[in-house]
Simulated scan of single mutants.
Amino acid sequence: MNIPLLDLKAQYATIKDEIDAAVADVFASQYFINGPKVAELEKAVAAYSQCAHACGVSSGSDALLIALMVEGIGAGDEVITTPYTFFATAGAIARVGATPVFVDIDPVTYNIDPEKIPAAITDRTRAIIPVHLYGQMADMTPILDLVKSVNLQRETKNKKPIHLIEDAAQAIGAEYKGHRAGSLGDYGCFSFFPSKNLGGAGDGGMVTCQDKDKAEKLQIFRSHGSRPKYFHKWIGGNFRLDALQAAVLRVKLNHLDAWTAKRQHNAARYNRLFAASGLEIAFTADVDWASYDRPQVVLPSAVQDRHIYNQYVIRVQNRDGLRAFLKDNGIGNEVYYPVSLHMQECFSYLGYGEGDLPQSEQAAQETVALPVYPELNDAMAEQVIEKVKAFLVEQKI
């Protein structure tokens, strides 16, 4: 049987009546921009994410962009982030005119390595953007402590602070020491792209925060910086969330925890099947990453409180060969991400070279995501593992 990487039709079939009714309600109201549906979703996402405020925006990319814009970050400023992430993270930094500064990843979680951040901070650093990749939060305590310490020093010198912006595009509902993604930084940025755990019927995003003044400014900036109408103190953008998307997402939010539990179940089942496969396996937390000695398969480690498994990512040495084999056998898979951002052509002006950020570069060469969506059943999961094993045994990897 063919097994897709993600089956949104299967999801829709379970909530079709709810979705159709919500969409019909929006059409009946003819209220498509902002309005009560968006406000209702904002309130619900804020509560779900343990935040005081939330502002619906047009995409996860624009969520990052507006957070930087609200803080006036731009030309001459530096923003520290990870090179192992979707392009939008660094793209937003460059779009406001600031300079991305890349810090290598922790190979256990694929998130930014907190120990490497202090060396990257300069007087020009205005923000740090940790990415909660694949559904697991970054190690936030040392990052929070670092930002607090630096900002205390800057306050005594009357210098601008460093802002902490969480890229939580893949992590809604993930937790770190009891705190939800998006609740620990100055801002939390979420994506509702259709393939996300909470996905809309098109583009959409959300910015969360705890500060009332920041929340009000977000609302202003998403509508061209206008308040009152036609009066502009700031230059914002057209970052509004459609009411249709808000209505769809509000329905789906009610099901999110059940879907997350199924993803976690599927990840645990994969782990059991791999353990029983006879393959040489290890978890990322158990690998000696300073050496080049690898088992046949490296499985993801859930080291934080709540991993929501936006993706289930394994590592193999002949990743591209495995991908081709799985495709030929009808099994969906994907690489997130094949080129580390510091090696992208558009960022060549930053001066990075091959070998500068080795953990990120190696992950880009070895990782592949397997289907983990909630509707994946036992037979499907068994077939996925069977085909992975068949390739690795045949290739003697």
Rank of each mutant, 00 (worst) to 15 (best):
M1R: 10
I3G: 06
L5M: 12
A13E: 14
K16C: 03
K16M: 02
E18N: 08
V23H: 06
D25A: 15
D25Y: 06
F27G: 12
S29E: 14
Q30R: 15
P36I: 10
E42C: 08
K43W: 03
A52F: 05
H53N: 13
A54C: 12
V57A: 02
V57Q: 03
V57G: 04
L64N: 01
M69N: 07
E71D: 12
G74N: 11
G74A: 09
A75I: 13
E78W: 11
T82E: 03
Y84I: 02
Y84R: 10
T85N: 13
T85D: 12
T85K: 09
A94K: 14
V96F: 07
A98H: 10
D104I: 02
D104M: 04
D104K: 06
P107G: 07
P107M: 08
P114R: 01
P114T: 00
P114G: 01
E115K: 11
P118F: 03
P118C: 02
A120C: 05
I121Y: 07
D123H: 10
R124P: 08
A127E: 09
I128K: 04
I129S: 00
L133Y: 02
L133G: 02
G135D: 04
A138R: 00
L144P: 05
V147F: 01
Q153K: 13
E155M: 11
K157M: 06
N158W: 07
H179Y: 02
S183N: 04
G185V: 00
Y187W: 08
G188W: 00
C189H: 01
S191P: 13
F192G: 07
S195P: 10
L198D: 04
A201V: 09
G205P: 11
M206K: 10
D213F: 11
A215R: 12
K217S: 07
Q219V: 08
Q219L: 11
Q219I: 08
I220K: 14
F221L: 08
K229V: 13
H232S: 12
K233C: 06
Q245Y: 03
V248M: 01
L249H: 11
L256T: 01
D257W: 07
W259C: 00
A261P: 07
A261K: 12
A261Q: 10
R263W: 01
Q264H: 03
Y270G: 09
Y270S: 07
A275W: 10
L279C: 11
V287K: 12
V287S: 13
D288H: 12
D293K: 15
L299D: 11
D305M: 02
Y309L: 05
N310F: 03
Q311Y: 05
Y312A: 02
Y312W: 07
V316W: 05
Q317T: 13
N318S: 10
R319P: 05
L322R: 13
R323L: 06
D328Q: 15
D328W: 05
D328K: 14
Y337F: 09
L341V: 00
L341E: 04
Q344F: 00
Q344G: 01
E345V: 08
C346E: 12
C346K: 11
G353Y: 05
G353P: 09
D356G: 05
L357G: 06
Q359N: 14
A364R: 09
Q365S: 09
V368Y: 09
V372F: 01
V372E: 06
E382G: 06
Q383G: 05
F391S: 12
E394V: 08
E394H: 11
